[in-house]
Amino acid sequence: MTKFIKGNEAVVVGALYAGADVYFGYPITPASEIAHAAAAWFPSLGREYVQAECETAAANMMFGAAAAGRLSMSATSGPGMSLMQEGISYMAGAELPGVFVNIMRAGPGLGNVYPEQGDYNQAVKGGGHGNYQCVVLAPASVQEMCDLTLRAFALSAKHRTPAILLADGLLGQMMETLVLPQEMPPRPDMTAWAVQGTPETRGNLVKSIFLNAHEQEQHNRHLQERYAAMRADAAHEAYLCDDAEVVLLGYGISSRVARSAAEELRAQGVKAGVFRPVTLNPFPAEALCKTLDGRKALVVEMSNGQFRDDVQMHIAKEGKRYQSVSLVNHMGGVVVTVDEVVKAVRISF
């Protein structure tokens, strides 16, 4: 069964199949269609939809739903995501699952509503306070807007930390054919720690406060163990990389531009491939290094080199020799064109 829908709507399809119990919305362009679809579909399926008074409230509502052992989500764009950082940090501290969707737009500040990838560091490095990490997934198609939302719920519940679906205005607004999921995954059992107003959960307590410094440190160390365990879930996609002389690196919509560029470069006789992380945290560093293996690399991104810098950091952390990684980018809501990538490859290498 298929559906021709917007990326933003596909997110809601994924959430419903994931078993999301409740959606907390606040409108913002270019993410509003997610709230529209959730407001229409969540109640039809017996789930709850709440329009929050602000994104700060929405994120704290997610904290509350998660504390009660419920699967919850919200979607927003940069300005709203900044406000949600409070709730994300508290959820990470209290080891609560939940899915945040960021349909990135240009910033900083009010910026504009056109696609950008400038929130990479905020999502991947943690935009709130404290030693925490979120699972970060980067869809590159309408199909993945649905499928990775499902995976975000699963990974968030598995690792007991919030998950962020990091997409952008183009992925949110575009339409493609979605093949609907076949079934719902089993529901994670959270009764061991959730507070549900039942006899069996009466003794449970959800908190992020540890007044004793040593206890707080222990808690932090425990969280780091969780994040280390996340690495096994790193995922990537390599396209035409086997015989590539040049590897184009990009995530999300940039990887789609890179894909077209690789095809065009091959038509021109340059063996190009594309490596795209599907998970930005955990980062598929090992696979990246294996794929690159000293080959020429060019990053395509719609931000100021945040992603490129991270790629270089991961290469270094894997113990590889320093590798120069070129960059072709735009900011401000300007989408990198296929021509620009092709030209950059031809000039750089």
Partner: peptide, 11 residues
Amino acid sequence: HAVATAVNRTE
């Protein structure tokens, strides 16, 4: 109040 909103809606 935001947290209690979520809890009363789901439980």
